[in-house]
Design a binder for these strands. Sequence first.
DNA 1: TCTGGGGTCCTAGGACCC
DNA 2: TCTGGGGTCCTAGGACCC
Length: 433
Amino acid sequence: MKKRIFALVDCNNFYVSCERLFNPKLAHRPVVVLSNNDGCIIARSNEAKALGINMGTPYFKAKNFLHRHRVKVFSSNYPLYGDLSRRVMTTLQQLEPEMEIYSIDEAFLRLPPDSGMNLNILGRQIRTTLKQHTGIPVSIGLGSTKTLAKIANRFAKKFPEYNGLLDLTAVDPDPFLNRCEINDVWGIGRGHAERLRARGVHTALDLTRRDDGWIRKQLTVTGLRTAMELRGISCISLEKEGKKKSISSSKSFGYQVETLNELREALATYITQAAVKLRLQQSTTGCLQVYLTTNRFSKTQTLYATRETINLAEPTANTGTLIKHGLERLQKIYRPGLRYQKCGVVLTNLVPAKSRQLNLFFKPDKRQSELMAAVDRINTRWGRHTIQHAAAGFTKPWQHRQEKKSPAYTTQWQDLPMVKASWPDSLLPDTFR
DNA sequence: TCTGGGGTCCTAGGACCC
DNA sequence: TCTGGGGTCCTAGGACCC
């Protein structure tokens, strides 16, 4: 069997790199990007990391520190990051069609094993092309399994001597596994890492040397797969199929919401968003879950968190139908007198729109799907809130504001960056003189 | 005052069936 | 006195990921 080679291409400090792309003054300055609601720090430039700012720190706790160190702070600007991610992925796919988009800023590639091409040169080409075409810097790790490619990528990113690229298929990986802390292994989270350390497993290499039965007992089959992957036996394949198996939409409120009316508007809004994503991947949903929760950090109010699952008689992607079912159930779980922090929706049991199982008594209404298609077309063309169900509300005061958001440089005409150029007369073509 | 959002996969345990 | 056992399906919850 031919040796497999996986590459993990990961954008460096992706959200920060996106902000810097249109704001070159940010280069070499510490920069952080906040989560939705300006809640937590979710991206940091190298300079911010060097200041000791941790991933996931609540913004309100770090605010003074950031100000003191003149750290530039941004709310997250998902239209911008999403658009730049699409550009990166499109460019990458042109270079290497065997690709899996793993997250907004990461992709796995499967490289042809016998291409005769020097992998180092190929990797450098990918980095250079991405930088030229999109302006986004990336790091690349190569390994005989996805888990090893992940580890290679960590080293490539962290240590400047690798210059953004490490190929673990060309060397003995053991010394690297020995330098890799167990909690830095892909698939080993905090809980498992603690458990393993208590039993003498401190590095990735330690894990590879344990007995299969023991690993399975401690970490279940997922952990065993990870261990096999670290030993160079590929167990996790490239997933090219991009369709989601579940779709969710939720957001924390801008303030503590108490009335059923506000909750209804918010839930209808999230159902609308989820339904758009559903139709975008040409699926229908057979199951709708709605949930509702009070503030989980509150010290004065007991936590109320509940959800309702609705199995639909026949799968649908119709926003109106989904809103109707969702609001009915919301009524059931609403408790007056509580202050709610968040609600949301999860769509599961997704089936392709073309092959859904119809109910014996169900007459497919072609006009309904045509209506949805028309609404989607209009909202794509004119902006996503141009047409909506009245149930989703109009002013939406419960929505959260994002106070430090950069412009939508690439997705809004009015936000396009302006380039000012001045040329000495001698360089201008005759027609401009 | 202020702590994100969107995913995947696995397992235990209950319901149900024969 | 004394009431089975094994299989399958579903779901909630947990762990992990970015």
